[in-house]
Design a protein around this nucleic acid. Structure first.
Lengths: 176, 176
DNA sequence: CGGGTACTATGATGATCGTCATACTGACTG
DNA sequence: CAGTCAGTATGACGATCATCATAGTACCCG
């Protein structure tokens, strides 16, 4: 269910995804929604974000990139694969929740923020390990993350991967 | 109504915004929804995007920036103002629609794409006028747009303007 | 004044949503 | 074997949504 929710969030946003959709796509039993998610939809969103965050983190940690350029390329290639394999229909599930959630829903927003920060920090860490000074690494990591999130939206709008490629090429210039 | 819809889209996304919300916020009469928007909510979304697109374009055209740095700063300052004046609650209405709309809703997606492209092209044009070679100008403009859209999401998640400022500083490095 | 057009008031419709209560299943514990 | 409990089935609830039909009002043109 969490996995289905995450993919649905990434293609239609959180509010356009109903429990019925999640049930239908995951094959999970209807009756056990509030057994596994006692707090309802909010909890499903939080769990889906957490699941996505961990998945991305695990993928990043599997990287063997040694140079700063390889680090960024590995991160970018991950998002590029999302766009290509979904024919520009999917984006980032975390962003899909972030834009659909009123900013005063503290716990959901906190999960969103934690996900973004974990990715940014992991990326910065890898850049530091590849020889980039810490302060610059943090800034480059954050900019790359923002660039990707924005590029995902542009790709979705255009229906192709071209914007992401163009953004990626520019982001590479930020490296020493 | 269009103005209200646009601001609501930018703070909660398109699907979380009901006609009732738009009515309540705009003070418009309930009975005349389908007089002004015969195609229903889809048309409201398209019109809100068009209105936002034109508003941003008009603001950009009012710029007197002469150097490439000033051009980017003017564009960035606009988004920064959105974040600051809304206390990090608002983002980009076009993005709010883009993520909430299934990718096969062709006419809405076309409006979204047109909005993004018009901004990107206007920005590139100004960069060229400030002396940046055309090819680079287009790439920098697209990257800046993507960076801002992503930064808006990060600011919303964090509740502050810090991510946007960090991204802005890095984007400036792309200029010759 | 008369007629037509633009807009609004009111409220109904069917669908869908999130949420939950109640009852059932099966497997595991002692 | 009796008992417990995680998980599932079924279906109902109030609310809200987008949409529309019908009837009304305001205003402009001649």
């Amino acid at each position: 269910m969490v996995r289905s929710a995450a993919t649905l969030f990434s293609t239609r946003g959180a509010n356009a995804t109903s429990f019925s959709d999640v049930i239908a796509q995951s094959g999970a039993p209807r009756g056990s929604i509030y057994h596994h998610f006692p707090e309802g939809k909010k909890q499903l969103a939080i769990d889906a974000i957490g699941w996505t965050a961990q998945r991305v983190l695990a993928h990043l940690r599997a990287s063997t990139a040694a140079t700063p350029g390889d680090v960024l390329e590995y991160f970018i290639a991950m998002w590029r694969h999302v766009v290509v394999s979904s024919h520009a229909a999917a984006g980032c599930a975390v962003a899909g929740v972030a834009l659909d959630t009123p900013h005063d829903e503290a716990d959901v927003m906190h999960a969103v923020n934690a996900a973004f920060r974990s990715w940014s920090e992991q990326l910065a860490e890898q850049l530091v390990a590849a020889g980039v000074p810490a302060a610059r690494a943090r800034a480059i990591a954050l900019t790359t993350l923002a660039g990707m999130e924005g590029a995902l939206i542009l790709c979705r709008a255009e229906g192709g991967v071209a914007p992401l490629d163009a953004v990626a090429e520019e982001l590479m210039r930020l490296l020493p």
